[in-house]
Amino acid sequence: MPSFQNRQELVNELEYHYFIFLLFSIFGIVEAIQLYHQKQRKELTIYLFLLLPGLVITVYTATQVGLPSIAEELGSWFGWMSQ
């Protein structure tokens, strides 16, 4: 993961996470309202159940530096990777 050399880089990094967060929030709100109006309760539940954790993870990854990758984690669980 990048070690930020200056403030600008940090801002850039935050910026695109922020962008993703906003984009998907907007999508989410619009579509959730649509589903609500169409009275598709089951779909709405699934929708929110998938979207909200996604948004939380987006925020989480934006604020963390040097997270291990999923492959590394899996590798350390199962001993797949040689690292």
């Binding site: 993703i20 989410g28 699934i46 979207l51 996604g54 987006t58």
Partner: peptide
């Protein structure tokens, strides 16, 4: 209706 939330998860994954 699954595309948006799954798309976000896909990207994060």
């Amino acid at each position: 209706f699954l595309t948006v939330p799954l798309g976000l998860l896909e990207f994060l994954f």
